[in-house]
Amino acid sequence: MKHKDRDKRTEIRLAGEGGQGMILAGIILAEAAAIYDGKNAVQTQSYGPEARGGTSKSEVVISEEAIDYPKVISADILVATSQEACDKYTGLMARGGLLIVDKDQVGRVLVHQAVRAPISRLAAEVVGQPITANVVALGVLVGLSGVVSREAIEKAVLARAPRGTEEINRAALAVGFAEAARIAGG
């Protein structure tokens, strides 16, 4: 039987190590959906007591309707930026879900359909700022899934960007979109 209203809610899980910005990425994605696309969105997180290190996970549920259960039941999309996160959450995905891994951080993936994107390398080498990896990941995620509109994610990223970093964040998002286009095209 169905355990969730599949056609009504989209569940996204972003997981990695503490400090990689996955929680913030989840907040931005939820803001894109809720504020700029006018849908409903709920973001939750779980993390250890420490600010850096440890596994950290951010969950976003997006729906046209009111959202009851705020957590992911079975992720339609998983973004994993560490091996531990990938190992832990791949098995908890919905059938046919989209798995995106940072291929520089994740060597072993247990399923065939995974999208392997060089997220942290793109952030470091193309954008020129390793700290923008979470925004690159959002670009790949939105570019491949269309879970929120491109306009919405761009507005949400820029609204959260500290003053003076708007351009670098815009560039990081564009790099993510380009990578998504390359993956979809190839």
């Binding site: 504020i35 973001q43 705020p70």
Partner: peptide
């Protein structure tokens, strides 16, 4: 903790 840290529209 869920309600406290959850972000909602």
């Amino acid at each position: 903790e869920v309600i406290a840290h959850m972000r909602e529209k």
